[in-house]
Design a protein around this nucleic acid. Structure first.
Length: 296
DNA sequence: AAACTTAGCAACCGCCTTTTG
DNA sequence: GCAAAAGGCGGTTGCTAAGTT
């Protein structure tokens, strides 16, 4: 269909890995003219690439706010939770993880998570695998989050789990709102979570991390969470919903420690199916820590 | 040391949706 | 309202480095 001129142009299109020169050209062009209109951008910039290729390179690699390096346990937890909720909606999941791309999350899922499914001979899309993640892996990640935070609090090193005390107090206030709500209330209470909490990486509980992440991404301008409170075996239980994000928590009362150490712990207890009692499966899963990137 | 395998990830492909003229 | 172009998304491929035999 195209003219011979266009065919020649097509033949000249570059493919494969980008060179430093091409990256510089793209960055410089976008800095001057902004992103978008990728096809005309590709032509005007002098790059011998398709518009799609330029767009992908920019969004997945060159954009300044791209975060590089291993996913943190917090991020892994969030991916697992969101994937169980939304499935392979990589772009949607990526929107909940600042600086992470859909491609990166997709790769993570395929290379790490599906590998485990294969290892366990479980279909990664099956309910059973989801339960395995919830029962064995998510608590393990949670443990890792706690470990990281305690080690970071005892050293001066900067890490993603470093606590911003001001934001922590905001979260604490939000939690107080949660706790003071009558448990007999038949209607969900609306709770506002301050946006200033967005940069918090809580070292105290995954619940806080999840709240923070959800807050950060779903409602950037004044956030509203709904929750239900109930009580099981003397523990306060909460169901928290922020936007499309829902999760159950148990409140563990640790009075002597004080506000910042009061914990909300995700409730991963699910109805125990027979296969869950399979010691072999459990030990197989637990022994796979080294295969996962719990470091960082 | 060489051959082979595996893991990780950047990049491409094709399809679908949205935007533009 | 329609067709073409552009953008977006999920699936797949292929390359490279690291690990294993």
């Amino acid at each position: 269909m195209g003219s011979s001129c266009n065919e020649i142009a097509f033949d000249e299109l570059r493919r494969g890995p980008w060179t430093l020169e091409e990256d510089d050209l793209l960055i410089h062009y976008i800095t001057c003219h902004g992103e978008g209109r990728w096809n005309s951008l590709a032509k005007s910039s002098g790059l011998k690439r398709t518009g799609k290729s330029c767009r992908l390179r920019w969004l997945n690699y060159l954009k300044p706010d791209i975060k590089r390096g291993n996913l943190t346990p917090q991020e892994q937890l969030l991916i697992l939770e969101l994937h169980s909720k939304w499935g392979n909606r990589w772009s949607k999941i990526a929107h909940q993880l600042p600086g992470r791309t859909d491609n990166e999350i997709k790769n993570y899922w395929r290379t790490r998570v599906q590998k485990q499914a294969r290892h366990l001979k479980i279909d990664s899309n099956s309910k059973r695998f989801v339960e395995t993640l919830r029962r064995f892996w998510m608590p393990r990640l949670l443990e890792k989050v706690e470990q990281n935070s305690s080690s970071s609090s005892s050293s001066a090193s900067i890490s993603t789990t470093e606590v911003d005390q001001n934001n922590l107090s905001s979260i604490w206030q939000a939690e107080q709102t949660l706790k003071t709500t009558p448990s007999s209330s038949p209607q969900p209470t609306i709770m506002e979570i301050p946006t200033s909490s967005s940069s918090l990486c809580s070292s105290y509980s995954m619940a806080m991390v999840l709240l923070e992440n959800s807050n950060l991404q779903i409602h950037p301008n004044g956030d509203i969470a709904t929750y239900y409170k109930s009580s099981i075996q003397n523990n306060d239980c909460y169901h928290v919903g922020i936007g499309n994000f829902d999760m159950d928590f148990i409140h563990l009362d640790m009075q002597a420690i004080g506000p910042a150490d009061d914990m909300l712990v995700p409730e991963f207890q699910v109805a125990e199916a027979d296969w869950m009692k399979d010691d072999d499966l459990a030990s197989t899963f637990w022994s796979m820590d080294e295969l996962w990137h719990f470091r960082n």
